[in-house]
Amino acid sequence: MFKILQYSFYDLVRSRWSYVYFFFYLVLGFALLFLNSSVSKSVITLMNIIIVLTPMIGTIFGVMYFYSAREFTELLLAQPIKRSTIFLGQYLGIALSLTLSLVLGLGVPFMIYGVFQSSEIWNFGLLLVSGSFLTFIFVAIASNIALMHENKIKGFGYAIFIWLFMAVIYDGLFLISLVVFDEYPLDKFSLIATMLNPIDLSRILILLKLDISALLGYTGAVFQKFFGTNTGLFASIGILMVWTGIPIFFIKKISSKKDF
């Protein structure tokens, strides 16, 4: 698997888009730090961007790569290599190269501006961990869609829809249910609804670590009580792992039945 991962990774690292993505974060990091001049404020702004962007880029790149690497895949399929190895290798190659762009692109400017000496190091770390998880999750989901649909346009459409659903529509439904069931105690519901969407979960995890959590008021206190504890943190990371694991499992399952 490592060899496949290596080749996919090199293939991507050499492609123009990885550089664009990397330089985007690099410029973003420097620009934010230059404008805000404080690491902590930059972290808040970055959160908004990461929460929206990493899933979207993960989705688009994931679908694009799996479609464009079809020849490579067919070439590999005729070689004495296990199927799951091929697909998991490709998946990890793309997820890792995107994560690397994110971590290096943001890491370099923040390192230069002294994030290691700053108390924000943990928040910044959490930001990168969430961003990486979101990348892994959405690349995996996109891979599944690309595997299930031969038609590129269709696959692309479904992938974008899934992203749109998770990033926007889900929160809309969440909001509507909160407003409609106003009369009932909603703490548990909010907590569960947040946990079920990795984008919301990452957003809340980061929000709670920042000063801005005070705005969350009473509801925030309930969340803080849960996420603030070790159990809460481990539960969240566990859920993010499940979110990563399930689509990966399906990559394995779908790819083992697919004809080429």
Binding site: D171, G172, V179, S190, Y218
Partner: peptide, 21 residues
């Protein structure tokens, strides 16, 4: 306005949906 009506909705703070809204 929504947060005033239903305080729990504050959990959606800084969600993309809210910006669109």
């Amino acid at each position: 306005y929504i947060v005033n009506q239903t305080p729990e909705t504050i959990v959606l703070l800084r969600s993309l949906f809210i910006d669109i809204l």
